[in-house]
Computed example of a mutant assay.
Amino acid sequence: MDKFELRCWDGHAIPGERINSRDALYKCPVCEKTLFIQELPIAGAGSGLQKKMAFWEDVSRVLPVPFFQERISIGEGSTKLIASTANENGAAERIYFKDESQNPTRSYRDRAAALLVTHARILHCKEVFCASTGNMGASISAYTTRAGLVARIFSDKNIDIGKKAQIKTYGGLLFDSYPSMNDGMDDCLKQQIQDGGYQATAEFNPLSLFAQKTIAHEIVSDGIVPDEVYISIGNGGTLFSLWQGFNDLHASGIIPSMPRLIGASVSTDDPRISPLKESKYSQRDLMENALRECHGTKISISESEITAAISTLARTEGLFVEPATAVAHAALMKR
């Protein structure tokens, strides 16, 4: 019996077994909206979700047994919450930072890469295709190397030099001459279909959204039930994943209410900060629905506000972050 199905926000469902395809299955065949993995209730068994669960224990509640048996892991997940120094100074509210840089390649994308590369090995794929602006490409490159597979990473000419070096050092084959990420993603889809490899682009594989919701589970596992969560919007997928993770916990009675999610969007065309701003493959349809459900909102952030947030985090918290990460703290400062 399937423990999950693929579903769009309008409720059209596809059997979970369809995920065992090498092809990109990311749009509903009925309405063309973004698909996500929806857990199914098991009569008399509940969800199996508990307040404290490690990453693989969490995802194995839902995914088929081979995911756990064949798992490719470098120690992803179970990252720490860092309390703000403001909490020690009598602040009216307590602030915490979820430090995803504690993952193996220093990115939250390692959660998705672990599942995607594991799935590629289950399906006996030799090559893994991924379009990425940097973080996902580095994660996929690291995990494919671990699994003895080949990573083909598609990016645009604006890819960060550090991420470029990271991808190549892990052994990923990088194609970064595309004028835009839309072009890179188009070619990634085309070549993966032609060559028959595994599609691991975050926007093209629902397992990515599923993996990321474990971040919300871990926040509550650490004893924090937030009133608000601030996050960079990016392509919209991560915000939706957090909403889904908190919704799991609320539906299971583990938390009494849903936190309000605040999405930080960037009013800049700088590709270092907002590389997917004009992407035709974004998951923002899911994000918009999630924001409505939790009475969340979006806050627009300028480049100067991002710079100020980077400085504030470094000088008051001892945290040095990249611009895309600072967007969320800039939104908190702007309230």
Rank of each mutant, 00 (worst) to 15 (best):
D2C: 04
R7L: 08
P15L: 06
A24Y: 09
Y26P: 08
K27I: 11
V30R: 14
C31L: 14
C31N: 11
F36D: 00
Q38K: 14
E39F: 14
E39K: 05
G44P: 04
A45P: 10
L49W: 05
Q50S: 13
K52N: 14
K52V: 15
M53F: 00
A54E: 13
W56H: 02
E57N: 13
V59H: 05
V62R: 08
L63G: 02
P64K: 00
P64C: 07
P66V: 08
G75E: 07
S78E: 11
S78I: 09
K80F: 06
A83W: 04
T85H: 14
T85Q: 14
A86W: 13
N87V: 01
N87Q: 12
E88Y: 10
A92Y: 01
Y96W: 12
Q102P: 02
R106S: 11
Y108N: 12
Y108H: 14
R111C: 05
H119Q: 11
I122R: 02
L123I: 08
C125K: 00
K126E: 11
C130N: 05
S132W: 08
T133S: 13
S141T: 03
A142Y: 09
G148P: 03
V150Q: 09
V150P: 00
V150A: 06
V150N: 04
A151H: 01
S155R: 12
K157R: 13
N158D: 12
D160W: 10
I161D: 13
K163V: 03
K168F: 03
F175K: 12
D176S: 14
D176Y: 11
S177K: 15
Y178M: 00
N182W: 11
M185V: 14
D186V: 14
K190L: 07
Q192T: 10
I193H: 10
Q194V: 13
G196Y: 10
L209M: 06
L209N: 05
A216L: 10
H217Q: 01
V220W: 00
S221F: 06
S221G: 09
S221A: 14
V225M: 04
P226D: 06
D227C: 09
I231T: 11
G236L: 05
T238Y: 12
L242M: 01
W243D: 05
Q244V: 07
Q244M: 06
D248L: 03
D248T: 02
I255E: 00
S257K: 12
P259S: 07
R272F: 00
S274M: 10
E278T: 14
R284F: 05
D285A: 10
M287A: 15
N289K: 11
A290K: 03
A290P: 01
L291A: 03
R292W: 09
E293T: 15
E293C: 12
K298P: 08
S300F: 04
S300I: 06
I301Y: 06
A308T: 06
A309Y: 00
A309V: 02
T312C: 13
R315I: 09
A324L: 08
V327C: 07
V327D: 08
V327R: 03
A331P: 09
R335P: 03
